[in-house]
């Protein structure tokens, strides 16, 4: 069921304590900042957050972490020059980290949306990130079993939506958006523009509306 909502606060109002929330973006490109701010305001806590990073500076995801609302981060690159809030929580033992090679992160998200029960990948074989995981030699290469990552909610940013929820993105801001939209039970999208149904060329739709539940326009 697709809803167009008037505010970001309304868009995230259904997020419950203990939810797994996927958040799109790589660096600032494609980060749904307004939706993250609304998640902050809605008060949900004990969250597991899936994002490539673990927050930067004093905004967005970094503030959620600072306020102790994130129980666990699943990400590929938590440490950055300005990831001080994550660093502090990690050193204090107040946040759990599941570190995943970036391609395994993306494919595990994709697998969830595609109904795949897991997959073998050469990435990470023979490294500490494969410790304790099932391995096989396939076609002469060592490979590691990786499981899908499902989510209750995805918060993503797209450029435009049409009336049935089809989405197009902009340049490298696409990044995790399409696969997170498919992987989550409930996908919330902030867009810059909503166009009438028929206003997007079907050949150019990147995320079909079937994956989208709530759309909010952010100026």
């Amino acid at each position: 069921m697709l809803n167009f909502v008037d505010s970001v606060n309304e868009a995230v109002s259904g997020i419950k304590d203990g939810s797994t929330v996927m958040i799109g973006g790589f660096g600032n490109a494609g980060q749904p900042f307004e939706l993250i701010d609304a998640l902050m305001d809605c008060g949900a806590k004990d969250l597991t957050v899936v994002n490539n990073n673990a927050g930067q500076g004093d905004q967005g995801l970094a503030l959620l972490i600072k306020e102790g609302r994130v129980r666990k981060m699943i990400c590929s690159f938590p440490r950055q020059s300005d990831s001080w809030h994550f660093d502090a929580k990690f050193h204090a033992g107040e946040i759990e980290l599941e570190l995943v090679p970036q391609g395994n992160l993306a494919e595990r998200i994709r697998a969830a949306g595609a109904g795949i029960g897991g997959f073998f990948t050469p990435t990470g074989y023979g490294t500490m990130l494969a410790e304790g995981k099932e391995t096989r030699i396939i076609d002469g290469r060592g490979q590691v079993f990786e499981s899908p990552i499902h989510a209750d909610v995805a918060l993503i940013k797209a450029l435009k939506a049409d009336g049935v929820g089809n989405l197009v993105y902009r340049k490298t801001a696409r990044n995790f958006g399409p696969i997170m939209a498919a992987a989550a039970k409930h996908t919330v999208v902030q867009v810059s523009e909503i166009v009438p149904t028929g206003g997007l060329d079907p050949e150019n739709v990147v995320t079909p509306g079937i994956y989208v539940n709530s759309i909010v326009k952010v100026a």
Binding site: F77, L99, Q102, N104, T123
Partner: peptide
């Protein structure tokens, strides 16, 4: 704090 990013994927692929 470990951070791997895409390094393992590039090295392997």
């Amino acid at each position: 704090i470990p951070a791997v990013g895409g390094a393992m994927d590039l090295a392997t692929g």
